[in-house]
């Protein structure tokens, strides 16, 4: 099977593929260093903290906090032309200290967004009209369990 075409991610890519393989099972996972018990994000062959190579993709509760975002109106790549405007976001993850995850925010009005908002993953098929195939991806949305 050939790898999905850009800008889809390639779950077979050795360094980062674990993230997408977990997402395919609706899991949010990050590499955890067995030696120093720290999440190593972005993935590296060795833990930048202790140099250890025992990094294991570890699932965490897919919930966190909105760190910052941008409502993107311009399609910087042709693949996004039929998706703008969309909200590109950076979120921190409760169960993975130190991790900042880049994601897409959905089901929220941009005017309602605020730094610190509680968010939760919703796993959706990532598709682009310019390339074949799809890859399951963790998008985030305002946490429905927390009604103000």
């Amino acid at each position: 099977m050939t790898a999905p075409a850009f800008p889809l991610p390639d779950p077979g890519e050795p360094l980062t593929g674990g993230f997408w393989k977990a997402a395919a099972r609706d899991r949010l996972a990050f590499p955890l260093c067995g030696a120093c018990d720290r999440f190593c994000w972005y993935p590296e062959p060795r833990c930048p903290g202790c140099g250890g190579s025992g990094l294991t993709w570890t699932s965490v509760e897919p919930a966190g906090t909105l760190f910052s975002w941008s409502v993107v109106h311009h399609a910087f790549l042709p693949a996004f032309a039929d998706q703008v405007p969309f909200v590109a976001a950076v979120v921190t993850i409760d169960g993975a200290p130190g991790v900042r995850l880049v994601t897409r925010l959905i089901d929220a009005r941009p005017s309602d967004l605020a730094v610190g908002a509680r968010v939760r993953a919703r796993f959706v098929p990532l598709r682009f009209s310019t390339v074949a195939g799809e890859v399951r991806a963790p998008f985030f949305r305002p946490d429905p369990r927390r009604i103000p």
Binding site: F76, V102, A137, F139
Partner: peptide, 18 residues
């Protein structure tokens, strides 16, 4: 390419807007 571009967090204007 694997962890930012697929979500549309790309390129530099989007980083710095964030």
């Amino acid at each position: 390419r694997q962890l930012e571009v697929p979500f549309g967090w790309f390129p530099q204007p989007v980083y710095f807007a964030t």
